[in-house]
Amino acid sequence: MSAATTADAAAASTVELAGSLAASASTTSTGEALQFWVLGTVAVLGALGTVFLRKSVHSALSLAGTMIILAVFYLANGAYFLGIVQIVVYTGAVMMLFLFVLMLVGVTAEDSLKETIKGQRWMAALCGLGFGVLLIGGLGNASIKTFSGLEEANADGNVFGLARLIFTKYVFAFELTGALLVTAAVAAMVLTHRERVERRSTQREMAEVRVRENKHLPPLPAPGVYARHNAVDIPGLLPDGTPSELTVNPTLRSRGQVRDVSAEALESLAALEQRTGEALGREEPGEPEAGPDSNPGGDPGGDPGRNSGGNAGNADPDRAKEKTK
């Protein structure tokens, strides 16, 4: 009982927050109208964002925004309980579940909006447009003149009214939904549960498998961590100066967030070296033989100390440099 009263109190406060009157006849107050036009536009934008934004996290956030606006609309329509539930259950729990799964599944290439099925987009547009026009036309056709309003139904409080209906008229449906929820919970567990039917293979066994399959045996090479960046999104360079795919995390690769530091980057690096050398007044005896233009792949004779983090698998140029010196 106390819960109901607190809910009622909360509802009453939200009514005032929404600034609208739940009770009305054929028209609503100007405040509600304003709220509808402003928030309705935002809701539609959010829905469109859900559909058209490329990144799923952005989609999820747009949807959450739309849902919150819908919660406000529920409150405006006198459905105080549903408004709260919408925020708590939907926006709070369900959307968080979505985000959680998004995180689990990760980012894949399917997020691109490029259509692969022939004619699908046209058909979708046609169907959507037709359906929308029909629905809206049908609504316009229907003679909805007067709204009865919910003053009477909500006389004892919205939660009380709902509870009365749920536990009398809809009690069987209510019980059934309870069963449904339990079943769904069990189903989710059964679906996602994986029984380990075989022994977990040891590290040694996995290594042996890798050897047998002639795969990369030692640990993957480290990314090209430069002092300027100190980041994992820069691939290490192979002896010929091309970036190595192996050195960057696959997720970054599929997202396209890899920074390229090959050819022209090296050129600028070489220019920097030269400027530094001039400034310091250093003489480079091996310069003419191993210029940056004639051999862009090779290290242009920079200081090995500065260059130490450069290429993990790049021992050969270093050695060549040692020789030239």
Partner: peptide
């Protein structure tokens, strides 16, 4: 798409 199209047809018929 066919389902949605079917629903549209149903609405139209109604």
């Amino acid at each position: 798409v066919s389902m949605f199209g079917g629903a549209a047809v149903l609405v139209a018929a109604t």
